[in-house]
């Protein structure tokens, strides 16, 4: 097993390194601003004094690498500095919103993952049938639609015309979990639609790819019934691709969440990021980007490690 452990550790190290490079990128991208942050935020009209005062306050007089290390050390502990606009601690602003976003993504994932994997396997088994073709057209359509298109259609029907679900996902501080699920239903459904389509197609491709391998033909020629071929021969080898599909799509959820949050005015980190971008509130932008990137990298890492752990060649070395 030491071989596997070594590979996993190597992969983890690589992930950490990538994250570090990304953090450098995020931090120093802001340094590329014409002038500096203070100038950019305060605009052309600001007097030299106010700009200098802000520079003092942000500690811009010190060299960038030093500030980067401080920022990174803070970020690891959840301290991302203060907002340039409101002056609040970024960590405090982001905290609850990040939980909301995680909740929404988790909600969507819980619905989407089982449905899409089961449907994907079914479609792969019925490949080239009418059902498969219809599913192909539907998933393609779903993938091709921008999230806001799906979102507004859902609002139009489920909320405006039939009045079944609220169109604005306003979350109070003390609402029950049932109410929570109810109010977040439409945003979650929007994401489910997109992600399910993606996942179904990828699962289908992975399974079909697998079914073309000689050992599946061999199993069939041994007279193994179709369901046994799937359960005993295809599935044990399908874990790696399926884990990959799930992780990739969870990562996709993380991005899709931004647009969906804006459509439904959902109080999550995505909306915060968009607001901060238009207000040029850089500490918040940096923090949000770092969090998104970290989640993304983490999920990809999970996929890779999952693939390593389920590979029989690595689990049972010579």
């Amino acid at each position: 097993m030491s071989g596997v452990l070594g590979i996993v550790l190597k992969r983890l190290g690589l992930g950490l390194l990538t994250l570090l490079i990304i953090s450098i990128l995020i931090f120093f991208a802001v340094e590329l601003l014409p002038g500096d942050i203070a100038q950019a935020v305060l605009g052309q009209g600001a007097t030299e004094e106010t700009v200098n005062a802000m520079r003092q306050q942000l500690g811009l007089d010190r060299p960038a690498p030093v500030r980067y290390l401080e920022w990174l050390a803070g970020a690891v502990q959840g301290d991302f500095g203060v907002s340039l606009i409101s002056g609040n601690s970024v960590g405090n602003v982001i905290g609850p919103r990040f939980l909301n976003t995680l909740f929404l993504a988790g909600y969507a994932a819980l619905i989407a993952v089982p449905i899409s994997i089961i449907l994907g396997v079914i479609v792969a088994l019925l490949r080239n049938s009418l059902f498969d073709r219809v599913a192909n057209v539907m998933t393609l359509t779903s993938i091709s639609s921008p999230e806001f298109f799906l979102g507004y259609i859902l609002i139009l029907y489920f909320s405006v015309q039939w009045d079944m679900f609220p169109s604005l996902a306003s979350l109070g501080p003390d609402i029950s979990i049932g109410e929570y699920l109810y109010r977040a239903f439409l945003p979650a459904l929007t994401m489910v639609l997109v992600v399910t389509a993606h996942m179904m197609r990828m699962t289908r491709a992975a399974i079909i790819n697998l079914l073309a391998s000689p050992y599946i033909e061999m199993a069939r020629l041994k007279g193994t019934p179709a369901w046994k071929v799937i359960v005993f021969h295809a599935l044990p080898n399908a874990w790696a691709p399926i884990i990959n599909v799930v992780a990739l799509n969870l990562a996709y959820l993380i991005t899709g969440v931004v647009l969906v949050e804006v459509v439904f005015v959902y109080p999550g980190i995505g909306q915060l990021l968009v607001d901060a971008v238009s207000k040029r509130d850089f500490p918040i932008v940096q923090a949000c980007c770092l969090i998104f990137a970290a989640t993304f990298i983490l999920l990809n890492l999970t996929a890779d490690v999952g693939a390593i752990l389920t590979n029989p060649r690595l689990r049972h070395p010579k």
């Binding site: 931004v258 990021l273 940096q286 993304f296």
Partner: peptide, 10 residues
């Protein structure tokens, strides 16, 4: 390794 929309926003 950075989500595309996030990268674009940054």
């Amino acid at each position: 390794s950075v989500p595309s929309l996030i990268f674009a926003l940054l």
